[in-house]
């Protein structure tokens, strides 16, 4: 298993309510006390209520890919501030802080790996880096992965965890939606499979619109999904509305996603789809 950056589970599984002894934790959904080691073995899902804890890039890569098979693309791409954006802090300062906090260089990791020996190009977002918002650097990484998929005729799978717009890139970040949509169009017209996986959270215009472009759209149970940004809705209505925010089942019941997949079945499901495509 490859670990990227210095991320550890405790850093990214933010909802985990730890007990003082450090060995036990509480499920935020059903309040069950869980032994942390066991939680890890259960792929961070609650035994009692099947609550899916938020996990990070490393956990997903190790649960999806065959051991040590994932290789990252374009690790040297770095963010640039083209408009010299400063709010209460300069944009570049915010990126530095996000790096230090998350242990990642930016909010997307892309690469290639094997899943039960099937090759798969994979992109994954990191909502602990500036809310998983997608700036032009992140979109360039995804774009290059799409190109790699097309050139080598390998399926492309994109896992979402994002809840904000990269406001600091203003119009540039809006144009990125056109860039990635063009790339996905090319992928489609070349007959390459594109699967999207929606995890907690996949909200906001940028992320949710990309997510809806998959040939096959998979969601984890209980994930917050949608175009609306939860925080802005809360701002608007001046109250917490997280609890009634539409989740995976709402979109499934209304015909917007194909399958809700339990995390324990995620690898098996993806590999079946890719096996079907490759045959």
């Amino acid at each position: 298993m490859i670990w990227f950056g210095k991320s550890k589970i405790s850093n990214e599984a933010t909802e985990l309510v730890e007990m003082p002894d450090g060995l036990w934790a509480k499920c935020p959904s059903c309040n069950e006390t869980i032994y942390k080691k066991e939680l890890e073995l259960n792929l961070f899902t609650c035994f009692k209520c099947n609550h899916h804890f938020k996990i990070g890039i490393n956990e997903y890569i190790s649960l999806i890919f065959d051991e040590s098979s994932f290789k990252e693309f374009n690790i040297n791409l770095k963010a640039v501030d083209a408009i010299n954006f400063i709010d209460s802090k300069p944009y570049i300062e915010r990126i530095k802080e996000a790096k230090n906090k998350s242990g990642f260089e930016n909010s997307v990791i892309c690469g290639i790996g094997e899943i039960f020996s099937h090759k798969m190009v994979f992109g994954i977002m990191n909502s602990s880096f500036l809310e998983g918002s997608l700036g032009s650097l992140e979109i360039e990484k995804i774009y290059r992965s799409v190109r790699y998929s097309i050139d080598n005729r390998i399926p492309f799978v994109l896992l979402f965890s994002s809840s904000g717009n990269r406001i600091q890139e203003s119009a540039i970040s809006l144009m990125q939606i056109a860039k990635l949509t063009s790339a996905v169009n090319e992928l489609r017209s070349e007959g390459i499979l594109f699967v999207t996986i929606l995890t907690e959270p996949t909200i906001g215009e940028t992320a949710f619109l990309y997510a809806m472009q998959g040939d096959i759209i998979i969601a984890e149970p209980g994930a917050n999904l949608g175009l609306s940004n939860k925080s802005s809705l809360e701002q608007k209505s001046k109250k917490r509305i997280s609890d009634k925010f539409p989740k995976s089942d709402y979109y499934f019941n209304n015909g917007q996603i194909d399958i809700i997949v339990d995390r324990k079945q995620l690898k098996a499901t993806i590999s079946k789809i890719i096996d079907w495509y490759n045959k």
């Binding site: 056109a178 949710f208 949608g226 175009l227 609306s228 809705l233 209505s237």
Partner: peptide, 23 residues
């Protein structure tokens, strides 16, 4: 700002299609 609290189910798909067709 931005959409109704619970957006209509087909909205994102309709936007997504429109973007794809324009490109």
């Amino acid at each position: 700002v931005p959409y109704p609290e619970i957006e209509s189910p087909g909205l994102a798909n309709a936007i997504s299609n429109q973007l794809a067709e324009m490109t």
